[in-house]
Design a protein around this nucleic acid. Structure first.
Lengths: 157, 157
DNA sequence: AACACTATGTTGGCACGACCAATGTTGGTC
DNA sequence: GACCAACATTGGTCGTGCCAACATAGTGTT
């Protein structure tokens, strides 16, 4: 790319800047994830969700991180082969697979956390500490507004 | 997705928030672009680059908006069929095709501009005017830093 | 002038992620 | 018991980004 000559109409648009910044973040993360042997960017959210709550069904897992059920199946199968999680049928509801993270999975998640934090630092390098806080706060308000959180009574009419 | 139960490790990370916000922006834009009959998200940057500078080679075009030469070829061919631009061999350098936007293309670009502005408004709805300015300014600094612009002597060391 | 090297446009293909459809199975409801 | 909804799995489609190869044409070196 030639950033010196990008069209002026894109410079001022928040959507373009968000896309560019997001791409940079994905690039930095991708480089570090690839070094740890993770083949997809969906593995970290998956392990993070498992670490939050104990045993979960695959469908719940997918809903929480915004991943299709079919893709959850593939990722869980691979992570099971790596010993990062265990998958067992739910005795209470035999349609579900109860997935829970293992000790190895927690250790691996910790390693990924460290890489992720380093990537954050790289991405936000040009911003001061207080600027990062305000940026994160504003972005949080944006995604809350558009993902239908609606914390208070902000419904239209 | 179930935004109420997203993993806590993702909430505070700038990369995650940037990705989510970028996705929302792409969704809002995608809905409006599809309504205008544009099949790809690369058409607007292409036309915007053409409106900025006059006749340009396809390679330059691709470099300015970060699009591969092969994809530029496909998009230019389609936009030529729509009458939005003209493609003629450069008499000074017969390897190149000189591409320039037409009157119809400018009109179409204007329509896309209106849709884009509306999408911006939708995306940034929860932010005040001054907040939008600071957000755009911070994002601009981020992308400038990572796309190698290096406006002033901000080299490391 | 001959040579190597680079740049351009084009075609074809690969890989990855997002998404959808169908299927067999199981729970819940009327 | 009949009907519908949810689950996990397999398989496929589609858009986007990216790379390889090719033929053509300009640039630079000797």
């Amino acid at each position: 790319m030639d950033p010196l000559n990008t069209p002026v109409r894109l410079h001022g648009r928040a959507t373009w800047l968000l896309g560019q910044a997001s791409n940079q973040g994905h690039r930095l993360i991708g480089e570090r994830m690839q070094a740890t042997g993770v083949p997809s960017r969906s593995y970290y959210p998956l392990l993070a969700a498992l670490a939050d709550s104990g045993a979960t069904s695959q469908a719940d897992l997918g809903r929480r991180i915004g991943l299709d059920r079919s893709d959850v199946t593939a990722a869980v199968t691979d992570l099971e082969g790596r010993g990062c999680l265990e998958r067992a049928p739910d005795p209470a509801d035999r349609r579900r697979n109860l997935v829970r993270i293992t000790e190895d999975g927690l250790r691996f998640l910790g390693a990924l956390d460290a890489e992720l934090d380093a990537a954050q630092e790289e991405l936000l390098a040009p911003l001061s500490e207080s600027e990062r806080k305000t940026l994160i706060a504003m972005l949080g308000r944006l995604v809350d507004h558009h993902t239908g959180l609606r914390i208070s009574g902000t419904e239209e009419r």
